[in-house]
Each structure stands twice: as structure tokens, then as C-alpha cells.
Nucleic acid binder design. Structure first.
Lengths: 141, 141
DNA sequence: TCTTGAACCTGTAGTTACTATAGATTCTAT
DNA sequence: ATAGAATCTATAGTAACTACAGGTTCAAGA
């Protein structure tokens, strides 16, 4: 009868998140309502650790709660196909690449500024940082 | 007397954000309190468009309001000592680099997962993306 | 067994960066 | 002059947590 069980605190510790976060995920419908002790304390099993870990990893990867609910549907209702999961991951990857590109430009601008800084400040009209980011707008208009 | 002026609506439209967001940035101290008409409507100039655009771009890049306030100090208080400005710019650049690194890892993880997934060939039970995120946990226990 | 004190419970409030709504006022174009 | 679009202020709602408050339960030591 050694079916390993966990308190919410142990669960949270395993996955390195806060107890309140687990509560929140339960309220949000990502984590199920687990069985309780006589006194009302939540009892978790290994599968819950797996699930919570999945949720946390997805959050780190930039998925929203809503998106994760979608992903979990694939697990909970296995009538879905893997292709949907793949599509979501690809979309996410594209957005991440976009952010990387933008940040790279910003970093170049910052470095440029460091190089150009000679003690006199820039006015709003010729600040290399502002200009670096303003380009975006010119292209649009 | 053709100093181009803009209403808050025109400003927002230019930068593709909501009027309320401009209000919010004013309250947050990112946008200045502009001159008003007799009746109290805000009047903006070109420099405000530039500034708002900069703020929006920075937000897209993951900077917090607080960080953007720091960045804007470069422009608003150009009397900083050169060394001070350089230090701030370099610190920002380091943070940006950190973000780039994080996002790069994230993208690799996503791409790896996508690459391992054929798409629509099989059901959720053997979807490598789901597996990839579950595995993480096994390593911990 | 009895008793602390840590962990847990529910519920509400605070956080960030907006977004939406309400009700009043102002601007603009016919 | 007047309709209606845009603006004004102020407040409430959103996402994804985080942090209390104030009570109850659990586990370990005396």
C-alpha cells in the first residue's frame, strides 16, 4: 500500500513553485480537485506532479493559461491529434524568434550608444537608441 | 505656424495603441503631461510620437515600465556624467543579452520538440512534445 | 497523550500593464 | 446651431500570480 502521496507543500516544492500557485491552477481548472484528508488537506499523487510540472514548463515557454488549457485538453481528451500541439509550438517558436530579432537590434543600439557617449547628452531628435527603435514606425508609414 | 500637432487619438493611431494606454503612460510618468486646449484636450507634437513609439517598442521587447523609465532617463536628463550614462547603458545591454540568451534557449527547445513531431500521424499518447515536457520531471525525482 | 508550531485551509487584497466602461464635456463638420 | 465623434476623469475588470489574514489540521517531541 505504498502508493506515494504528497501534501500540497511537497508538490509545490518538487516543482519549485508556490503553494498559492497550485491553488490558483486548481481554481483556473488546470489542476484537478484532488482527494482530501479527513480534515480537508489536499492529497496528491505522482501524476499530479507530472501535470504541474508540465504546466510550469509551458508557462516558462511563454504559453498562456488559456493555451495550456488547450494543450491539456489533448491529454485529457485523447481524441485530439498531435498536429494541433505541433502547430501551437511552431507558432510560439516564431513569436520567440521575432523577440530575439528585436532584442538584438536593441542591444546593438545600446552598445552603439555606449560607444558614442562622450559626456554630452542627446536630444530626443538624435538619440541613437530612440532612432534604432523608431525605424519600425517609418517603415509602416 | 504649421507646427504639426496631434490629438491623443491621432497620436495613439500613429503608434497603434489605445488612447487609454497613453493616459496610463502619462499617469505612470513615461509620457509627459502635454499642453492642453482651452477645453482640456491634450495636444501632442512629433516628439511625443517618437517617445510613445519608443515606449511601445520597449514593451514589446519585454521591458517593464520601470525599466523604460530608466531608459528614458538617458533622454530626459542628458546632464548625467558620461561614466554614469555608460554604466546604465551597459547594464541595460547586459540585461538585453540575458533575455536574448533565455529566448534562444527557449526557441531551441520549441524547435527541437517540433522537429520530433511528425504532425498528424499519431494520437496524443505518443506525442513527443508532451513527452518532452513530462520528461523534465523524471529527471528531478 | 498532550501540546506546540509548522503546514494547511478559504477568502480577499495587492501587483503589473493594460483594457473597458460610464457619464460628462468638448470639438468638428455640416 | 447642432449632431455626433472624440475626449475628459474616474473606476472596474483582466491575466497570472503573490501576499496577507485569521482560522483549522497535522506531525513530532515531551
Amino acid at each position: 500500500m505504498n502508493t506515494t502521496q504528497f501534501s500540497i507543500g511537497q508538490l509545490a516544492k518538487q516543482v519549485k513553485c508556490k503553494v498559492e500557485t497550485v491553488h490558483y491552477y486548481e481554481k483556473s481548472g488546470l489542476m484537478p480537485e484532488p482527494p482530501r484528508t479527513e480534515g480537508g488537506h489536499r492529497i496528491y499523487a505522482l501524476s499530479h506532479i507530472k501535470r504541474l510540472n508540465f504546466i510550469r514548463r509551458c508557462r516558462e515557454l511563454g504559453f498562456s493559461i488559456k493555451q495550456i488549457r488547450e494543450l491539456l485538453k489533448f491529454i485529457d481528451e485523447p481524441d485530439h491529434y498531435c498536429g494541433e500541439v505541433k502547430a501551437m509550438a511552431m507558432l510560439q517558436a516564431r513569436e520567440v524568434q521575432q523577440k530575439i530579432d528585436d532584442l538584438t537590434r536593441l542591444k546593438l543600439a545600446l552598445n552603439e550608444m555606449v560607444g558614442q557617449c562622450k559626456g554630452s547628452g542627446y536630444s530626443i531628435d538624435d538619440c541613437p537608441i530612440i532612432d534604432a527603435l523608431y525605424i519600425e514606425n517609418n517603415q509602416l508609414s
